[in-house]
Write a protein that binds this DNA or RNA. Sequence first.
DNA 1: ATATCCTATGTTATAAAATAACATCTGGGG
DNA 2: CCCCAGATGTTATTTTATAACATAGGATAT
Lengths: 157, 157
Amino acid sequence: MDKQSSNTLSRIMTYAEKECQARSLRLTPVRRRVLEMLVKHKHPVSAYQLLDELVEEGHKPAPPTIYRALDFLLEQGFIHRLATQNNFVACTHLGTLHMGVFLVCKRCKKTVELLGDSIRETLVDQADQNEFSLEEALVEVNCLCQPCQSQQERDQP
Amino acid sequence: MDKQSSNTLSRIMTYAEKECQARSLRLTPVRRRVLEMLVKHKHPVSAYQLLDELVEEGHKPAPPTIYRALDFLLEQGFIHRLATQNNFVACTHLGTLHMGVFLVCKRCKKTVELLGDSIRETLVDQADQNEFSLEEALVEVNCLCQPCQSQQERDQP
DNA sequence: ATATCCTATGTTATAAAATAACATCTGGGG
DNA sequence: CCCCAGATGTTATTTTATAACATAGGATAT
């Protein structure tokens, strides 16, 4: 891993630790390990992928252990869930109030998380008009990233 | 069923038939039946609920049959999939170019589909800035509808 | 210190959602 | 009529997620 992502990783872990302390919650070894793994991955990963990685490390947790850790991290806003992919991904806007808006390349799965402020405004508005109160939202956008667009053109000219 | 929804049902089925004809595709009995069931339901329903209903009717299809029908209906844009709920719902804006934007009451599951034009514009914009080309998007908004807000207040004052 | 309680984790089993792989049917074009 | 592509049937399996109950471990009060 390069210096940049290493910095990012440690900064995120420090942030998570402080947040947990502030909220009187425990960032236990399993939770910490799962968060670390998610931060290190470039792409969203599934619960069972995480499970397999832990098994390789010697730990042998069962599915509920992973799902409980994921639930915790979701609740604290440290990670997001991409429902169309059955995947989880570390939040890249920790500490910033935002809505989960994701561009996902449907070919290589490269994922970019946006802040989605203007979308949030629109949604609050439209929810209001329909007498719904917005609680939380998930926006998943199936895309092609630039390299995959080029590749696609080469594949099917 | 009241006259209004009956009209809606038959109008939708007629629309689907014409569209299939125009595209040289077959709205087979299974596909037709699944679409009918989805239109009749007020809330999004799961593939296995649909399966159970067909079993009750005497038909005894296996999961692949339902999923193939659902895939067909999704491709034709007659229905949408709500990924966070593992549910499917009939499109309420047939014939209108739109993006799937859903307000879903997290208590009673009442669901409203919006056209989402302004959100689409925003997303195209932001995808562009990130060198992604938008293909399709899913926006699911967890909400509380007005009656459920009131109920919630009564439950937990 | 230790009893107690709450939270987290371990463990086993199972439910729920989706798909793979292959067989069979069917209906429209030659 | 025959053929073939597309649709459905069938069986088995994979993938994702949770239920239910047992155990451990850390903070708090006494």
